[in-house]
Design a protein around this nucleic acid. Structure first.
Length: 602
RNA sequence: GCCCCCGUAGCUCAGUAGGAUAGAGCAGCGGUUUCCUAAACCGCGGGCCGCAGGUUCAAUUCCUGCCGGGGGUACCA
């Protein structure tokens, strides 16, 4: 866990103070957490009221264990703390104070500035990185669109969240493995094959996805009045699954065309995968997976289907094969888990999939758990407790679920194009001399779309709103990109070495202090993002940071004049530029983690 | 029927360890630039925090019930 350096300093000093002053206790109970900086660190909190200081250490627990009055301990502690500070007064300015049972500490602004800016500038883009995940593999299953269907904005969630988590875990030292579990198998391909044979004589034309989708929609419509179609589709999929050439050829064509189309969208988004192993990849691994479950004695026949009964766990039965013998998605997910475990020996496996599939994953994970119990696999070699479903809500449109069948869908590529077009128009107005306008416009348009998706907590349903996505003001991706471009502009203009010796006394205004506090929180924000698989932590943090910096950028003196970053006062300029550089680094890195590019000019 | 998620300003959303005058963006109104990028900054107006109980010194936050919206609940994924 990346440490909060300032808090750690407080913890170390306080532990030292405890050791120096409470000799009698130290001798009899040397293992008390009070005497150890690392353990004390865990007990230190942030006060609710910032006026109390930067950190607060509550002494109630200590007092209870020691059988003493918290206020008395606090008084003795404070004396020792102050003595230590006095000895090291050249190193940092830190003030301790007590209020009842709370031992509060507050850093002098220049001390905060020095510690934070040193950290950021020395680490550069590595700031916030850590090695907590070192040696650990995390498999992330994300995006996973359905073949032969349009890539709608609904698919952006899994794609953007997964890609973000990939980068975040990588930054924390994990080895991430990104898998696109394409929906390229299943009964719907039987339907498509039948539909294509019936009505696809004209070929698929130059927009094959659209054409395939039309066929799919038409199939569903005609199926309502002609039940024989349903049977035909089932047979076609059955044939496909059992290796029939004719069906396989058609299927392959559908897959290739779709992948080609999806790749265009991924290219715009700048998103990549380590593996494009869709459901069909597991086709030849199905028998052994089913065999393994059977051998463990978990399966039974029910209504002609092969199922695993989960009544005991209050879950519907997990269907492995249908009455006609064909497999289902649970079967393929199980085979996928077995394969991934064999292949990657993952420490964690995340499934970034809509919350609607909650029960499905509960079933599948429970089956794996039962299997490993039945097989008597040692606890630490089990995969079942490493599986996690990262759930998120819908993107709705016109307050309805997006549905390809109902035609209520917004194509992601269209959104990205429109956003880039708008960005281009704005650049033409504001900065027509900019080089490479098209490229920058794409960066901004895409950034706007991705940020819009990652700027609410993932579990809520959101309504897709063209106006909101195509608005580049306020809490948006372009706002962050603009702030970054402005920071770059300052660095360019200054043009000198920023790491040269800095007088931190020039960074003590309240607005600057706020920026500094935010800067040092960044490593913690990354950890929170990983802990909750919640990119929103980063997006909301970046908005706060950008807003805090923009306030500094336009802060005014008593006469209402803007205090410029770059002025005649060399020392002040140098110090402010150090702040500028630190903010620039963090915003760029934060945007990178979200999967958003940061243009240097716009 | 049962299970899960959501209900906060006109709109979109924060508020995750219960605590004081509930925050932000958009939209509306009013300011700021002889220019370090105004895609910004500053200010104003706007809220029975779905409803009703309960726990607590204190509830938007925890518990129960109800209402409203969404999703799930064996042969789709």
């Amino acid at each position: 866990m990346a440490k909060d350096e300032l808090k750690y300093l407080v913890a170390k000093l306080t532990a030292q103070a405890f050791r120096e002053t409470f000799k009698e206790r130290l001798d009899s109970f040397p293992d008390d957490p009070e005497f150890d900086g690392d353990r004390l660190y865990e007990k230190i909190e942030k006060p609710k009221d910032p006026a109390m200081g930067d950190y607060a250490f509550p002494l109630f627990d200590t007092a209870k264990r020691w059988g003493q009055n918290p206020v008395d301990i606090n008084k003795r502690l404070l004396e020792a703390q102050q003595a230590i500070i006095l000895r090291d007064k050249d190193k940092f300015k830190l003030e301790f104070s007590i209020k009842g049972g709370f031992n509060n500490s507050k850093f002098a602004p220049e001390t905060l500035a020095r510690l934070v800016i040193d950290n950021v500038l020395n680490a550069g883009e590595e700031y916030g990185s850590s090695d907590v995940g070192s040696g650990k593999t995390i498999v992330i299953d994300y995006s996973s669109p359905n073949i032969a269907k349009p890539f709608g904005v609904g698919h952006l969630r899994s794609t953007a969240i997964g890609a973000c988590l990939y980068r975040v875990f990588e930054k924390l030292g994990y080895r991430p493995v990104g898998i696109n579990h394409l929906g390229d198998w299943g009964t719907q391909f039987g339907k498509l094959i039948v539909a294509y044979r019936l009505w696809g004589a004209g070929g698929l034309g130059d927009d094959p996805i659209e054409r395939l989708n039309e066929l799919y929609v038409r199939f569903h419509k005609e199926e309502e009045t002609d039940p024989s179609l349903t049977d035909a589709a089932r047979e076609a999929f059955k044939a496909l699954e059992s290796g029939s050439q004719d069906e396989a050829e058609l299927w392959k064509e559908f897959v290739d065309l779709s992948l080609e189309e999806f790749q265009k969208t991924y290219d715009i988004l700048g998103i990549t995968f380590d593996y494009f192993t869709g459901e069909s990849f597991y086709n030849d691994k199905m028998d052994s997976a089913i065999g393994r479950l059977k051998a463990a004695g978990l399966t039974e026949m029910s209504e002609d289907a092969l199922v695993i009964n989960l009544d005991k766990y209050n879950l519907p039965p997990c269907l492995l094969t249908k009455a006609d013998g064909a497999t289902l998605y649970a079967t393929r997910d199980l085979a996928g888990i077995f394969y991934r475990w064999e292949t990657f020996k993952f420490d964690r496996a995340l499934y970034v999939v809509n919350a609607a599939q909650r029960v499905h994953f509960q079933q599948v994970f429970k089956v794996v758990e039962l299997l490993e119990e039945a097989e008597h696999i040692p606890e630490n070699e089990r995969m079942s407790h490493r599986l996690e479903h990262v759930q998120f809500g819908w993107i709705r449109f016109n307050d309805q679920a997006m549905s390809t069948r109902k035609g209520n869908i917004v194509i992601l590529k269209d959104v990205l194009h429109r956003a880039a077009e708008l960005a281009r128009k704005i650049i033409m107005e504001k900065n027509p001399d900019l080089k490479d306008i098209d490229r920058t416009a794409r960066m901004i348009g895409t950034g706007a779309v991705i940020f819009a998706d990652l700027s609410t907590r993932k579990h809520i349903d959101v309504n897709f709103d063209w106006e909101a996505v195509l608005n580049f003001e306020g809490e948006t991706g372009p706002y962050l990109q603009y702030t970054h471009a402005r920071l770059c502009s300052l660095v360019r203009k200054y043009g000198r070495d920023i790491t040269a010796d800095i007088d931190y006394n020039h960074l003590t205004r309240p607005d600057e202090n706020r920026v500094l506090h935010l800067l040092y929180r960044f490593p913690h924000v990354i950890e929170e993002t990983a802990a909750g698989c919640e990119p929103f932590m980063i997006s909301s943090y970046l908005l706060q940071l950008a807003s805090a910096f923009n306030a500094v950028y336009q802060q005014k003196d008593g006469d209402g004049r803007i205090i410029k970053i770059i002025s005649e006062d060399e020392k002040a300029t140098n110090a402010r530029m150090a702040l500028v550089e630190a903010v620039r680094i963090v915003i760029k890195e934060g945007l990178y983690l979200l999967g958003i590019e940061a243009p240097e000019e716009m």
